[in-house]
């Protein structure tokens, strides 16, 4: 089980109850400021992010002796936390909240970019391979899906085909696409990523056809064989405003963002996080261990670290 190790907060020496309470407060207020003694990572709710955080945390704690707390928060909230200093860094941002990004990075300058993560993110519409093999024409041109919409009907979607939408915090404009292209589909959003995964797994195991919002990197891709449906090519700004969007999704260089003060401090931890850069495959390996094999994130990270010393040695700042 993945622990959010808060660790001891520098109160071990305190003797009497009152003294202890006081030092406890003092230690805490200092820690939440984002100093060198504890780094707070914003960890969005998908497994890839868990993998990032687990590896960074393990390395920071073992190699640089820096305490790390990973707090689960999705992008919109994470940006607020980076702005206020409640979090120091987010390791994987999908550019899902352009408004806040603009406000904090460009206007207020309280959040700064930490460079690319190295992982390439890609979003699109996917169908399972067993269905794609039977209907190759639909895979090449998404409009042909209208021919087969009856395959995708469920009790939820009624007369239309069922489009499994993304969880609410994910970047998406599928609903608008369906409307703008007169697709005979009903966009039914997922409540959470877990719910979507479970639903896909269920449908996949039952060999049922489905059409879904899906993305890479995603550890489930190793268990579920899916084929992307081709959407109109993305051009910069084509999805703004969403109501007029007529294009697919951008291929994203996932980016790290840091709290400005934290970045400026240029502490070892900050340097390390700026250096942190790994590939989609690396991330999938760790994520797969966590989600697929149900390993403890800490153990999964330890295993990857043990096997890939050459990769992470570069991230450690020089003394």
């Amino acid at each position: 089980m993945r622990m959010k190790r808060i660790g001891t907060i520098g109160v071990a020496g305190a003797g009497i109850l009152g003294v202890l309470a006081l030092t406890g407060c003092a230690a805490d207020t200092k820690a939440s400021g984002g100093g060198d003694d504890k780094v707070v990572l914003a960890e969005p709710s998908w497994v890839g992010a868990t993998a990032n955080a687990a590896v960074v945390k393990k390395l920071l704690e073992d190699e640089l002796d820096v305490k790390v707390e990973a707090k689960q928060m999705d992008e919109p909230v994470a940006f607020d936390a980076l702005n206020s200093g409640k979090a120091d860094a987010i390791l994987e941002d999908w550019h899902g909240v352009p408004k806040k990004e603009k406000l904090y990075v460009e206007k207020k300058k309280t959040v700064v970019s930490g460079g690319d993560l190295g992982v390439v993110g890609h979003i699109g519409w996917f169908v399972p391979k067993y269905w794609a093999d039977k209907h190759p024409d639909a895979v090449k041109d998404f409009k042909k899906l209208n021919k087969y919409y009856k395959d995708f009907r469920t009790s939820e979607s009624g007369k239309l085909g069922h489009f499994i939408g993304a969880a609410p915090s994910y970047s998406q404009h599928d609903k608008e696409l369906i409307k703008n292209f007169d697709m005979k589909f009903k966009h039914i959003p997922s409540g959470a990523e877990a719910a979507q995964l479970k639903e896909l797994k269920r449908l996949y195991d039952a060999k049922k056809p489905f059409l879904t919002y899906w993305w890479e990197p995603q550890w489930m891709n190793e268990k579920i064989d899916m084929v992307e449906v081709k959407l109109p090519k993305h051009t910069p700004g084509c999805e703004v405003p969403a109501s007029k969007a007529k294009c697919g999704y951008e291929t994203n260089q996932l980016e790290k963002f840091l709290n400005a003060d934290f970045a400026k401090s240029n502490s070892k931890a900050a340097q390390f996080i700026k250096n942190f850069h790994w590939s989609t495959e690396d991330q999938n390996e760790v994520a797969g261990m966590i989600a697929g094999e149900k390993m403890d994130p800490e153990d999964a990270a330890a295993k990857w670290i043990k096997e890939n010393k050459s990769k992470w040695e570069k991230w450690i700042p020089k003394k």
């Binding site: 808060i6 001891t8 907060i9 109160v11 071990a12 305190a14 109850l17 202890l20 309470a21 406890g24 407060c25 230690a27 805490d28 207020t29 939440s32």
Partner: peptide, 14 residues
């Protein structure tokens, strides 16, 4: 709220 919680938690931990 935060201070109360932190204090209590560190007490429990210590």
């Amino acid at each position: 709220a935060q201070v109360c919680y932190d204090t209590l938690l560190s007490l429990l931990e210590s």
